[in-house]
Simulated assay, not measured.
Amino acid sequence: MSLKTDYKNDKFSGMRKYKIETDSETGLSTLDDKTEYVEVGDIFSADDINNTNKAINKIEGTVNDMIGAIRLDFPKTGWSTQAPYKQTVNNAGINDTDVPVPMFEYPVINSEQQQKDVDRSVGYITDITTNNGSVTITCNYRKPTADFILVLKGI
C-alpha cells in the first residue's frame, strides 16, 4: 500500500470569509464559505489516518521482530553419533524463512578449561538452519564437547 504524500493546504488571499444564515423557525445557523481560494487543499480523512496507522503498526511489528532474540540451549549430549554431527532444538517462535544473526552465550562457567571447551565447541559449527519450529546446528567434522547457548537475534 502506498500512502498519499502530496497533501496540500488551502491557499487564499486575505482573510477567510463566511456568510452566516439563520433559520427563522429553528434559530440554527449555517456557515457558507465565501473565501476566495487561490488553491483548494486536500481533506485528511479517517481513511487516511487509518491507512497511516496500519502502515505504522506493520513497521512496528517488523522492527520488534528484528530486535527480538531467542535463546536455545544446545547440550553436549544432544549431538548425533557420527559426522556430520547435528542437533535440532525446538522453539515455536522460529520459521524457516527467518534469517537471524547468531550469537553465543556461555552457560554457567566454573573454570578456564570449561570456557575453552565452549569456545572450541562453538568453533566446530559449520551451519545453522532455521526450520518451522526448530533450529538445526551442523558440525561437519567434530562433535561439540560442551554445552552452549545459541542466541538468535532478529526473530
Rank of each mutant, 00 (worst) to 15 (best):
K76F: 09
V40W: 14
K19Q: 13
T81A: 14
S121D: 04
Y106G: 00
M15C: 12
T88P: 00
N64P: 00
N50G: 10
L152T: 00
T30K: 12
T22R: 12
R120N: 10
F12N: 01
F104E: 01
K76Y: 09
V89G: 02
T130D: 01
Y18I: 11
G68Y: 07
S2V: 10
D96P: 07
N50V: 13
N51G: 12
T129A: 13
K76A: 12
D42N: 12
K4Y: 11
N64M: 07
T52E: 09
V40E: 15
T30P: 00
I155W: 05
E25W: 15
I20V: 14
I59Y: 07
P100Q: 04
I56Q: 04
M66H: 03
I125C: 01
E60G: 06
F148H: 05
L3P: 00
E60Y: 13
D117I: 00
G154Y: 04
T129P: 01
D10A: 03
R71N: 05
K143G: 04
G78C: 02
F44V: 15
K58I: 05
V38G: 08
D98M: 05
E36I: 15
S13D: 14
M15I: 13
T126A: 02
K153G: 13
Q87T: 06
K11L: 14
K76Q: 09
G78S: 04
L3D: 05
G41W: 12
L31M: 14
D73F: 08
M15D: 15
R16D: 07
T35G: 03
E39Q: 15
S45A: 09
V38W: 10
P107K: 03
S2F: 02
N110F: 14
K116P: 01
M15S: 14
P100H: 03
D32K: 15
K143M: 09
R71W: 02
K4P: 02
P144V: 03
C139F: 05
L28Q: 15
L3G: 06
T136R: 03
P107D: 06
K4W: 07
S29W: 13
E36A: 14
I59T: 11
V108D: 12
Y7Q: 02
G133T: 06
K17N: 09
N91M: 06
I49C: 05
T88H: 02
T26F: 09
V89R: 02
V122I: 12
I155G: 00
V89L: 02
E21G: 13
T22Y: 08
D73T: 11
M103G: 09
T97Q: 06
G123V: 06
G123E: 07
V151C: 02
N53S: 09
G93M: 10
K11P: 08
Y141K: 07
L152F: 05
K17W: 07
I59L: 10
G61D: 06
Q87M: 09
K34G: 12
I70H: 00
G123A: 04
N95G: 11
